[in-house]
Amino acid sequence: MKNRVRVVKRPQLSFLERWYLGPVVKGLGMTIKRFFGVLTDVLFRWENKKTAITMQYPEERWDFKDNFRGAPALVMDQEGRSKCVACQICEFVCPPKAITMWPAELEDEDKVEKYPERFEIDMLRCIYCGYCEEACPEEAIFLVKEAEIVYADRESFVYDKDKLHAMGGIREDRIMKWKDK
């Protein structure tokens, strides 16, 4: 095998750098600059603050990016029907087994046969990995920008179908399977 060792030269510090005083002064300068910046923010322009990054939670909150992975939620199409067909793929793929569902047959409906009679996600178990969203063949489950899930008892962390639908809301769909199929 060919010798693949490559010698990397260590950077040589200059005399001033080896003395350390220059960088120390530079760092102190930054601290002093921010000190006066924050002071000005606090005294004169808190509403349009420029330097301070403190956030007055919970009055002020982050606006998450669109690809933020928060809590998983079920979505409905523009006619308010759940997109989930209870295929149980998310239940299968979920690493901490947070998803439980009870599929059932839709009576007097010949186009869509299966639906989740009950669908539960235990938010205490969920690790917000997004596997369910990735695996779902119906684009029915999404991770939404919901990150603050706090309750005093364990039962409340188990979200049922209605709660998950309310959280997921409506996403337009081109295919309406119970109409077109």
Binding site: A86, C87, Q88, E91, F92, P103, A104, E105, E113, K114
Partner: peptide
């Protein structure tokens, strides 16, 4: 048995 469980469970 319809829809009671996927076989892989």
């Amino acid at each position: 048995f319809r829809f009671k469980s996927r076989v892989w469970f």
